[in-house]
């Protein structure tokens, strides 16, 4: 049983116009076996939260804490966080020319486990996981994400999730840009990983669509860098019907517009 705890997190980025605060005091606790959905309009800071947990150098934590079973995540380097059991499925997976998928997956698995996987079972595991995600076998020979379509990149992110077996998976808009078939395949992958019972899931999404396939236990609504409402799965249904507009009246339409503008920037 693990706990990922985020307390009063404030995060800024440097822009050409100066320092800009994106997260304005976010608190969140996720435990093994739980699925949390973070929803919100564009520019509300959802992806910033995901990248900050993973340790992207662009995001500066100005106050607050992130701990994993009491360990200070913010003190860890990016690779240490991954080895501690955090996995970020990226919104825009990067192409890494010259590095084959086979080599990459094995190197990462070795780093995370602290020892090289047994070759025979590893190859079998990779093959099986790829088949379930409907990824062609020849992808292993290709360079990491190079020339993959948007949907293929997302499936390869979930492939890594299934192979690396993290304690917590953070899915940063994994559903965006996917057609319904791909969305189902990807959701099944997440559910398989989650179903093993050793993982907590933080699902970041703009749309409610993916929540038909991945059932959240908790829903948090993000607006302008803060959680403005929390609830159970029924909150997602309500968002599906009403959209984010009603938060605009609460927080002020201008805030939403500004947040959207920031996201565009």
């Amino acid at each position: 049983m693990s706990t990922l705890e985020i307390k009063d997190l404030h995060v800024s980025i440097d822009t050409e116009q100066g320092t800009k605060e994106i997260l304005k005091g976010v608190s969140l606790t996720i435990r093994t076996g739980e699925t949390h959905a973070i929803m919100g309009p564009n520019g509300s800071g959802k992806s910033t939260l995901a990248s900050t947990i993973a340790g992207h150098p662009r995001y500066k934590v100005t106050s607050g804490t992130i701990t994993l079973d009491g360990e200070d995540v913010l003190a860890m380097s990016v690779d240490e966080r991954a080895r501690a059991g955090l996995f970020l499925a990226m919104q825009y997976p990067v192409e890494v020319p010259g590095v084959s998928m086979t080599n990459f997956l094995r190197t990462a698995k070795t780093a995370i486990d602290g020892e090289a996987p047994k070759l025979r079972t590893w190859t079998k595991d990779v093959k099986a996981a790829m088949a379930q995600l409907r990824i062609d076998a020849d992808f292993t020979q290709r360079n990491v994400n190079e020339g993959f379509s948007g949907g293929e990149k997302k499936r390869v992110e979930i492939l890594q999730l299934e192979l690396f077996k993290p304690k917590f998976a953070i899915l940063d808009e994994t559903d965006s840009g996917l057609d319904v078939d791909a969305l189902k395949v990807v959701s099944e992958g997440v559910n398989r990983a989650h179903g093993e019972g050793n993982m907590g899931t933080l699902l970041i999404t703009h749309y409610t669509r993916i929540l038909r396939y991945i059932k959240p236990d908790f829903v948090h609504v993000f607006v302008d860098g803060q959680v403005v409402e929390e609830g159970g799965p029924e909150l997602a249904d309500r968002l599906e019907d009403e959209g984010y507009d009603r938060y605009a009246t609460g927080a002020g339409a201008a805030t939403i517009a500004a947040a959207s503008a920031a996201a565009q920037a």
């Binding site: 990016v78 690779d79 890494v96 990462a108 990491v144």
Partner: peptide
């Protein structure tokens, strides 16, 4: 960006 992606998978710099 390459570095971040690989490190986010546990691979040391």
């Amino acid at each position: 960006q390459h570095l971040f992606y690989l490190m986010a998978r546990g691979i040391p710099e």
